[in-house]
Design a protein around this nucleic acid. Sequence first.
RNA 1: GCCCGGGUGGCGGAAUUGGUAGACGCGCCGGACUCAAAAUCCGGUGGCAGCGAUGUCGUAAGGGUUCGAGUCCCUUCCCGGGUACCA
Length: 860
Amino acid sequence: MSTYNPSDIEKKWQIYWLENKTFKTPDTKDKPKYYILDMFPYPSGSGLHVGHPEGYTATDILARFKRMKGFNVLHPIGWDAFGLPAEQYAVKTGTHPRTTTEKNIGIFREQLQMLGFSYDWDREVDTTDPDYYKWTQWIFLKLFEKGLAYESEQPVNWCPELGTVLANEEVIDGKSEVGGFPVVRRPMRQWVLKITAYAERLLEDLDDLDWPESTKEMQRNWIGKSIGAEVEFQVAGQDHSLRVFTTRPDTLFGATYMVLAPEHPLVEVLTTSDQKDQVTAYQDTASKKSDLERQELTKEKTGVFTGSYAINPVNNAEIPIWIADYVLAHYGTGAIMAVPGEDERDWEFAETFDLPIIRTVQPPGDFEGKAYTGDGPAINSGFLNGLTITDAKVKMIQWLEEQGVGEKSINYKLRDWLFSRQRYWGEPFPILHVDGKPKAVSLNDLPVTLPPVDDFQPTKTGEPPLARAKNWVETTDPETGKKALRETNTMPQWAGSCWYYLRYISPDFNGGPVDPEFEKYWMPVDLYVGGSEHSVLHLLYARFWHKVLYDCGVVSTKEPFQRLVHQGMILGEVEYTAYEKDGKIISADEAAGQKELVRLQLSDSEVEKKGDRFVMKGTEITVDSKAHKMSKSRGNVINPDDVVKSYGADSLRLYEMFMGPLEQVKPWSTKGVEGVNRFLNRTWRLLFGEHGDEIRNLSESDPDSEQLKVLHTAIKKVTEDIESMRFNTAISALMIFVNEANSWEELPSAVAKDFILLLSPFAPHIAEEIWSRMGHAQSLAYEEWPQYDEKYLRSDSVEIPVQINGKVRANIEVPSGRIHEKDFVIGLAKQQKNVQKYLDGSVIVKEISVPGRIVNLVIK
RNA sequence: GCCCGGGUGGCGGAAUUGGUAGACGCGCCGGACUCAAAAUCCGGUGGCAGCGAUGUCGUAAGGGUUCGAGUCCCUUCCCGGGUACCA
C-alpha cells in the first residue's frame, strides 16, 4: 500500500478527533480568543450540497490556523431545525416532525464529520430542543415585557398553499419565497415585533461593522431612512385636517393636489355624496388586488377624486383631494401632497387626470424631461425663490414650525416584524389569553412545550394546528385560577436563529440564555461566514434581538457579528448549448426569445472560440456557454458524498478553496478536483517515494539555502493569505513548494515538518497521516504555526527589467546590496546589447530607476 | 429605472503603494515508460510575423493623466446580485 488512498486515512482521523475530543473548546480564558461562526444550517432531507462545504471549509481553515497560532478558538455547529419541510412531510405521511428532524440531523452531522471539520461537537445546539427553545421563549418574554411584542389585527400576507402568513420579507414578487406560491392580503390577529423602535440604532451601528459594503447598503436601504417634514393641510369647509409626509418641503408651493391611500381612515368623511359610488368601487378593487397584481399594474396610474378640497397652508390655494393606490397606506401618513413639477409619479398622475403642474425648481436650459428632480434655484415659491433645495428645505421647515402647521420629521421604510405563523413545527408562544388579554407565562413554567396533535394541518376553521390540542389550549392561569387559552400560533423559523450564536458559548447554562462570564470573553463573533441571501432577513433580525438583549444586560456588545464574509455561490459545470428549430440548428443569437426550441448539450470538444463567442466546431453557428445554478430539474447538482467517495474529503476541501476567491460566484469543474487530487498524490509521493509506505529519504542534514528559501517563501505566502482569506493563492503557494521539493535529491525532515503544518488546515487528514508516520504520537492540531524569517528570503542578486520608453528590452542582474545605487544600475542597463541597439543614435531625456523594480530610459 | 459588484489566454483564476500581464490549476501539443492503454514523469503552450535572436499586438470598447496603466480619471457597452410607486 503505497499510494495515497483517502478512504483509508480519512475515516481513521475523523474517529481519532472525535474520540480524543481534539477540538473541544477550552474552558479557560488564558489566551486571546477567536470566535468563528458558520451560518446555522437547516438540516434538510436532501443533505449537504457543495455550497455548504465552501463556507465551512473556509472557517475551518481559519479555526485550525488560529489554534496553531495560540488562540482559544470557539468553532461550533448546530441545527436550525424548526421549519416547513418536516411539517409538510408530517401532513403528508403523519410522521412526527421530530422523527424526521432527528433523522436529518443525523445525516447532516455525519456528512459534516466526513469532511473533517474541527467543530466542538460538545456544543451542538438544536432549536427544536425544549432546553434550547425555553430560552427562545424567555427572550420573547423580554420583548413582551418591554412592549416590543404586541398583538395586532392587520392585513397580512396569507399564503393559502402554505396555510400560513408570511413576513413582508418572505414575500418576493407577490409570491412566497419558499415554494413560490401566491400570497393574498387578509386581516388576521397576529403577533408583531416592534423592530421599528430600533430602526435608528440598526442603521447607525452598521457603520462600525467590518461587513461587505453591499450588505450594509442593503440593510440601509431596507431600513430606508428619509428625512423630511410633516405638513398639515386643512380640509376646505370641514373640521378635519390631513397630515402628509414629504422629503421635499421646499416644493410646497407646487402642491397642486393631494392623494390619500385608498385605505386612509378619512376617505369616508371626505368623500362627497356624488363621488361616493366611484370611491367605494375604487377602494373595493384596490383591496382585492393581491401584491402580485399591484406590481403588474404599476405602469398606469389610477385614482378617483373624493369631491373634497384641502387648503395649501403656504398659499391658501384650494387643491383637490384624490385617492389612488400609488400612495401606500403603511408608509408615512398614508397621504401625500402631490408636486407633479418635481416628482415623476405625481407628474404621471397629473397628466392622466389633467391636473395642474407648477414647477418650483428651475431646470437647466437644456432640460427636456417632465418632472425635474435635480437641484436648482426655487421658482414660483414666494419667500423661497432663488434658494437651492437644501436651503429652501431649511427655510420652509422653519416657516412651518413658526406657523404651527408642520415640523421636521423622519420616516423609515422598515415595518414592524410579523412574528407569528400558523404552523405546528415552531416554538410555541409562552402566552396565555386571560379575559381576552395576552399574559406572559411565568418564567418558572418555561419551556412551554409543543403538545402532541392528531393531525398537523390547520383546523377546518383556519386555526393553526396547535388548536387541535384542546387539552393543551384550554388551561387555567396559575396566578388567578381563571380560565385561560394558550396562544396557538408559533414563532417563525427566524426566532431560533436570532440568538443561537450566544447559546454555543454556554450550551448547558441554566441561569439564562448565555453565561455572562463567558459571554464577555467570547463575544463578539470575530468572523461570521455565510451566504449573501441572509443579508437582510436573518442578519437584521439577529442584530435587533441582540440590541434588545444588550438593553436587558444579557450581552455586553452592541453588535453580534463584528466581521462578516459571504461565500459566493458554486454553479454547475459550464454547459455549451446549441439550439435546434424545426430540425435545423440555429445560432444562439437567433434563438433568443424564440419558442419551440430543442436544446442540445455539446461537449467542450465540439465547440471552439470565435471572436468573443463560442461556435460549433468548424461552423459559424454560435452556441451559448454558461454555468447555471445547480438545480435538480437541470440535473447539474454535484453531490459532496460522491466527490468524497471518488477523491476524498481533503480534495473536496482543497478544490473548493482553490476555485477562486471565496466571495466570488464560480462554476464547478470536476477536472479541477482531479487537479488538486493530483497535487495531494504528489505530496504523498514527496514523503513516501514511489514504493512502500516508509517515509522516503528524509534527511537529518540541515537544509541548504535554496531549500530554506523555498520553504520560507511558502510560509510567508500561506500565512499572509490565510489571514486575509485568500485561500486560492495560499494553495497555489503550497503547490509551488511541492513542485520545487520534488526536484530535490533529498528532503530535510525539518523542511518537511513545516510544510506539513502549512498544509494541515487545508487538508487535515493527509497532513495528520503524514505527521504521524513521521513519528509524532500526537495530533498536529496544536503544533506551533511555522514562522518565516526574512533572512532566508533574500537573494544575492535581483533581476531588474530595463525598459526603453516603457517597453521591456532587457533584464539585468543587480547584486542585492547595490540596487539603490542609481548610477551603477543605469550604467549596467546601458551596457546591455539590446539596450544599446536602441540608444544608438538617440538622446536620453530621462533616466528612471526604481530600486529593485525597474529601470526605464526615455529616449528621443 | 435606481443602488451595489464584475468584465484579464481555450477555461477557473494570479499580478504589492501605478513598475517584466497571464503565478497556480485545468485543457491542449510533443516526448519518456508500456505489447498497448491508464497512471506517472519531462518539455512546450496569449495572438500574429520569423529558423532564430527578436519584433509587434494584447487585460470589454473609446479617450485621458503618466517615463510607465489590468491598476488612476472620463464616456460607452455587456454580465451578475439587490431593489422597485417608500412621497
